[in-house]
């Protein structure tokens, strides 16, 4: 079983839900990413989603766009992200790391070469936002062959007829995008999400994480009641962006700890 699978199994045994925070690699500085990853774990992260910076983040809102721009200004590319993961693995061999990004940097490196390097670095899962299952032939199977879980998205606009197809291509967990829109959008309707998740679970046995619109303990708790994992990105990246110099890690820890309390409140 993959590290992601093991994590979900262990959480389930304790009736707990997963917290999956997101940061963009290289934001705010090249040397700060690995310390931030450890800080996320200390504050209660079960899985880390590490953003691979891209010049044209089409599915992201302004907060994560700016994080990508800062990381690119720091000259952080896919190879650096893999090096950071390898560095993180030197002192953490249990927390799964999922790379999240866009197709082109991986396509440019080559799917086979990337999968090999990612596995060696200690990456557990890969979410390429702009590769849907229809285009994943030669991608998902390569990832799976190297023991990487291909993570796929489902959205409010996904028709029931597609869920099975997406689930078949996926590994690790399914990421349900709670809103129509880009990352950082507001106004999460948990009632609507709950209905959709019930439908998804009819066709998919993988754990289901929910992201988009989660910004505090209350929304984290509400989502943790209906999902297997709570994914939080813009709220954390916003903290990184606005923290005074030297305060970044503490601020992030503070927010993640708050989200953790929210997630755990759902299990009580």
């Amino acid at each position: 079983m993959s590290r992601i699978g093991q994590t979900f199994t262990a959480l389930k045994a304790h009736n707990r839900k997963a917290l999956i925070p997101f940061i963009t690699a290289g934001d705010p500085g090249k040397g700060l990413t690995v310390p931030l990853m450890h800080a996320l774990v200390e504050a209660g992260a079960d899985i880390i989603e590490l953003g691979v910076p891209f010049s044209d983040p089409m599915a992201d809102g302004p907060v994560i766009q700016r994080a990508s721009e800062r990381a690119l200004a720091n000259k952080v590319g896919l190879k650096d992200v893999l090096a950071m993961t390898a560095e993180f693995r030197k002192s953490n061999t249990t927390t799964p790391v999922v790379l999240m990004g866009y197709a082109n940097p991986i396509e440019h490196m080559g799917y086979e070469a990337f999968a090999q390097a990612a596995k060696a670095a200690g990456v557990d899962g890969v979410l390429t936002v702009d590769i849907p299952p229809e285009e994943s032939a030669g991608v998902s199977d390569v990832f799976k062959a190297h023991g990487l879980d291909p993570i796929f998205l489902l959205s409010p606009t996904t028709p029931e007829s597609r869920v099975e197809q997406v689930a078949a291509a996926a590994g690790g967990f399914i990421y349900y995008v709670s809103l129509k829109g880009v990352t950082g959008s507001a106004n999460l309707d948990t009632e609507e999400v709950a209905q959709k998740l019930a439908m998804v679970r009819k066709h998919c046995s993988l754990p289901v994480g929910v992201g988009f619109g989660i910004r505090d303990a209350a929304t984290a708790e509400a989502v943790a009641r209906i999902a297997d994992a709570v994914v939080v990105g813009s709220r954390i990246v916003n903290e990184i962006e606005t923290a005074p110099e030297g305060e970044c890690t503490n601020r992030v820890k503070h927010v993640v700890a708050e989200l953790r309390r929210g997630v755990d409140a759902a299990s009580k």
Partner: peptide, 20 residues
């Protein structure tokens, strides 16, 4: 039928746009 011109073209978008 999937929008491919040999290796080019295709549908490389986030899930939310697939149905549209």
């Amino acid at each position: 039928s999937h929008g491919h011109f040999g290796p080019y073209g295709g549908i490389f978008v986030a899930e939310t746009l697939m149905a549209a």
